[in-house]
Simulated scan of single mutants.
Amino acid sequence: MTAHVGEPHQQGLAQRLNWLRAGVLGANDGIVSVAAVVVGVAGATSEIAPILTAGVAALVGGAISMALGEYVSVSSQSDSERALIAKEKRELREMPDEELDELTGLYEAKGLTPETARQVAIELTAHDAVAAHLSAELNIDENDVVSAWHAAIASAAAFTLGALLPMLAILLPPAGVRVPVTFVAVLVALALTGGISAWIGGSSKIRAIVRVVLGGALALIATYIVGSLLGASGVV
């Protein structure tokens, strides 16, 4: 039987959507955090060197932090999944009859009659016992265990791409319009990332856009005020 056109029957679709959402959120973090830093420094001084230095430091530090956080998180998840896969393989070797009974019970719990559940369990076990048990018991696909290195690199890349926008917005325009241009560019970009995140998750685009734009605007206003106060006080 063929899949209906346009329906998401592809294996790993949920994981690809999660990766896409993580990339959008990583870019969003890069936009907001680096924009807040450079706008704060721009509030204290119009000199380009301090703004550039702070922006580059925020970009590099943020990208590394994102990569490390993602690496640790995904490593823990993938280690747990690999341990569960190894345990399931061992149980299938050592107690195949008990595992067949367990799989039958799982399909009975999903609404199949005992006879049908037994037949399904037998046929799936004959086809690929490990895959059948991982799917029914743990909702794991042995071929979909995420690489921690791939996740770390993707997270750092997304953050960096997002961070480049406020860097260019604050550095390229003349001194008198740097901050307004950065505000506009950042809020437009946040509206786009908020809309994309909502589209991926199937939630309200308007609510997501308003939420992320308001949050970004508050961050920019707060850091600009702090920078302006520090600059006016002569502390920096």
Score class of each variant (00 low, 15 high):
E70C: 06
A175W: 00
E99S: 12
V186A: 06
T53W: 11
I140M: 06
L13C: 02
S228N: 10
A175Q: 12
A156N: 04
G201W: 00
L192R: 02
V213L: 08
M95Q: 14
G215Q: 10
W149Q: 10
N18K: 13
A198K: 01
V177K: 03
G30E: 03
V212P: 00
L164T: 07
E91A: 13
R178D: 03
L172N: 05
L165D: 00
V210C: 09
I64R: 06
L134E: 01
A158W: 00
V38A: 04
S80T: 14
I209H: 08
E88F: 01
A54G: 12
A54F: 04
G43S: 09
K110C: 07
V38S: 01
V186T: 15
S135R: 13
L172I: 15
S73N: 12
H4W: 09
A14L: 08
A58K: 02
R90A: 15
V181F: 09
G195S: 10
Q119N: 10
L192T: 13
V120C: 09
V120G: 09
A136V: 11
D29C: 10
K205M: 14
L100I: 07
G40E: 03
Q119S: 12
E123V: 11
E115Y: 07
A126C: 01
F159Q: 06
Y107N: 12
V60N: 04
V72Q: 07
E99V: 09
G6F: 05
P174R: 13
A57I: 06
V188G: 08
A27E: 00
L13F: 11
A157H: 00
V213H: 03
V212R: 08
G23K: 00
G69V: 10
P173N: 05
A163R: 04
V236S: 12
M66D: 11
L92C: 09
E123H: 13
V236Q: 07
P174E: 13
V37E: 05
E47V: 09
V34F: 01
G194D: 02
V145P: 01
G162W: 00
A44M: 07
S65D: 03
A154M: 06
L138V: 03
G227Q: 05
L52Y: 02
R16Y: 03
G227R: 06
A67G: 12
L25H: 00
G194F: 00
A67R: 06
L124G: 01
V39P: 00
N28K: 05
Q15G: 11
V145K: 05
A3W: 10
M66G: 15
F183C: 11
V213R: 06
I122A: 09
N28Q: 15
M1F: 07
L187T: 11
G6Q: 10
E47Q: 15
V177R: 07
E91R: 13
D141V: 08
Q15N: 13
L229I: 15
L161S: 01
E108R: 15
T113G: 15
M95S: 14
V213T: 14
D141C: 04
Y107G: 08
A219C: 10
A163T: 05
R82S: 08
R90T: 14
R118Y: 05
A151P: 03
